[in-house]
Amino acid sequence: MATLGLIHNSATLVPVFNEIAARLIPDVRILHFVDESTIKNTIAAGHLEKATMRRVINLVGSTFDAGCDVALVTCSSIGAAVDMAAALYDQPVLRVDRAMAEKAVATGTRIGVVATLSTTLDPTVELIRRVAAEQGKQVEIVAHVCEGAFAAVMAGDGATHDRIVGAALTETMQGMDVIVLAQASMARVVAALPAGAVAAPVLASPELGIAHARDVLAALAK
Rank of each mutant, 00 (worst) to 15 (best):
1 M>C: 12
3 T>Y: 00
4 L>M: 06
5 G>F: 01
7 I>A: 03
7 I>R: 02
9 N>V: 14
10 S>L: 03
10 S>G: 09
10 S>T: 15
15 P>G: 10
17 F>S: 01
20 I>R: 05
27 D>V: 10
31 L>F: 06
31 L>N: 10
32 H>C: 14
34 V>K: 07
35 D>A: 10
40 K>D: 13
40 K>F: 11
44 A>Q: 04
47 H>Q: 14
50 K>D: 15
56 V>C: 11
57 I>A: 07
60 V>C: 07
60 V>Y: 01
60 V>I: 11
61 G>E: 09
61 G>L: 06
63 T>N: 10
64 F>K: 10
71 A>N: 04
75 C>A: 12
76 S>A: 14
84 M>V: 12
94 L>E: 05
96 V>M: 15
107 T>N: 05
108 G>Q: 02
108 G>H: 03
108 G>Y: 03
108 G>A: 09
109 T>H: 12
109 T>K: 15
109 T>I: 02
109 T>R: 15
111 I>W: 07
112 G>S: 12
121 L>K: 10
123 P>W: 06
124 T>V: 08
124 T>F: 02
125 V>G: 06
127 L>T: 07
134 E>P: 02
134 E>Q: 11
135 Q>L: 14
135 Q>P: 00
136 G>E: 07
137 K>N: 03
140 E>R: 11
142 V>T: 13
144 H>E: 10
149 A>M: 06
153 V>D: 02
153 V>P: 00
156 G>E: 04
158 G>C: 04
159 A>C: 00
159 A>W: 05
165 V>M: 07
169 L>M: 06
170 T>M: 06
175 G>W: 08
176 M>P: 09
179 I>K: 05
180 V>D: 08
181 L>I: 05
186 M>T: 01
189 V>R: 04
190 V>G: 06
191 A>R: 11
194 P>W: 11
201 P>F: 04
202 V>F: 13
204 A>P: 01
208 L>V: 04
210 I>W: 06
212 H>T: 05
213 A>N: 08
218 A>Y: 02
218 A>R: 12
222 K>N: 10
222 K>H: 04
